[in-house]
Computed example of a mutant assay.
Amino acid sequence: MAISLAKGQKVDLTKSNPGLQKVVIGLGWDVNKYDGGHSFDLDSSVFLLNAEGRVNSDSDFVFYNNLQGGNGSVVHTGDNRTGEGGGDDEQIKVNLSAVPQSIERISFCITIHDGEAKNQNFGQVSNSYVRVLNEETNEELIRYDLGEDFSIETAIVVGELYRHNGEWKFSAVGSGFQGGLASLATNFGLQVQ
């Protein structure tokens, strides 16, 4: 049975699941009734962070235009442009045993593509969640439902995998940003054009 987390909670992942090496991070959301004349396109992205909380290079930013990072240990399975249907809207596969030692944290984010230009924000999005699955058994291990009302934010850091004493843990972050993907990327040390 999955462990359900609230914002700010942290839970052990590998210590309580011995032998766990490959996980799938599932991200999901629904768009509320919206009549702004523009379609909603939510995107998941991943930042592979060093001990200072920064990316080492552009290749440590995994998203729809760069589907792999961490020497192939983190793989984005592709962009879902509508968010329609049940289940995960986007997924990221992580091979925990292959993540380079220079990576201390793996941050999972959801952004609204062109959210500011389209006057869209996470106040118009519901049922957002992140979950961690055992890739081999498809068992849901951890789930965090973002029940908070992000009324003006266009980007959210939903959760992070991080190393602690040689084990992997998961943190339910739930931190919102204005400025979309560009502000997130800048926050994590990327130069944005």
Rank of each mutant, 00 (worst) to 15 (best):
M1G: 15
M1V: 15
A2K: 01
I3A: 13
I3M: 11
S4N: 13
K7V: 13
K10H: 12
K10T: 15
D12A: 14
L13V: 15
L13K: 03
T14F: 06
S16I: 14
G19K: 00
Q21C: 04
K22F: 01
V23F: 01
I25R: 00
I25F: 00
L27K: 00
G28L: 00
W29P: 01
D30V: 07
D30Q: 10
V31C: 00
Y34E: 08
G36R: 03
G36F: 04
G36H: 06
G37V: 13
S39F: 05
D41S: 07
D41H: 03
S45R: 09
S45L: 08
V46A: 12
F47S: 07
L48E: 08
N50C: 05
N56W: 04
N56R: 08
N56T: 13
S57V: 01
S59G: 10
D60E: 04
D60V: 12
V62P: 02
V62M: 05
Y64Q: 01
N66L: 05
S73I: 13
V75P: 06
H76I: 11
T77P: 04
T77H: 12
T77Y: 08
D79E: 05
N80I: 08
N80F: 08
N80G: 07
R81D: 12
R81T: 14
G83V: 14
E84G: 03
G87D: 06
D88A: 09
Q91H: 07
I92V: 15
N95T: 14
L96E: 00
L96W: 06
A98C: 09
I106Q: 02
F108I: 09
C109Y: 03
T111M: 09
I112H: 10
I112Q: 09
H113G: 01
H113M: 10
H113L: 13
G115K: 05
Q120L: 02
Q120M: 06
N121G: 07
F122I: 03
G123K: 01
Q124W: 02
S126H: 09
S126R: 11
S128R: 12
S128F: 06
S128T: 15
Y129S: 05
Y129V: 11
V130I: 12
V130M: 11
L133N: 03
T137A: 03
T137M: 09
N138S: 10
E139G: 01
E139I: 06
E139F: 05
L141Q: 08
L141D: 09
L141A: 06
I142V: 15
I142A: 03
D145S: 14
D145Q: 13
L146W: 10
L146C: 14
D149Q: 14
D149N: 15
D149M: 11
E153A: 12
E153Y: 09
T154Y: 12
A155W: 04
A155P: 07
I156L: 13
V158E: 14
G159M: 05
G159D: 09
L161C: 09
L161I: 14
Y162D: 08
G166Y: 12
G166I: 14
F170R: 07
F170M: 07
F170L: 10
F170I: 13
S171F: 07
A172G: 09
A172Q: 06
A172H: 05
V173L: 00
V173M: 02
S175Y: 02
S175E: 08
F177M: 00
Q178K: 06
A182H: 09
N187C: 06
L190T: 09
V192C: 04
V192Y: 04
Q193D: 10
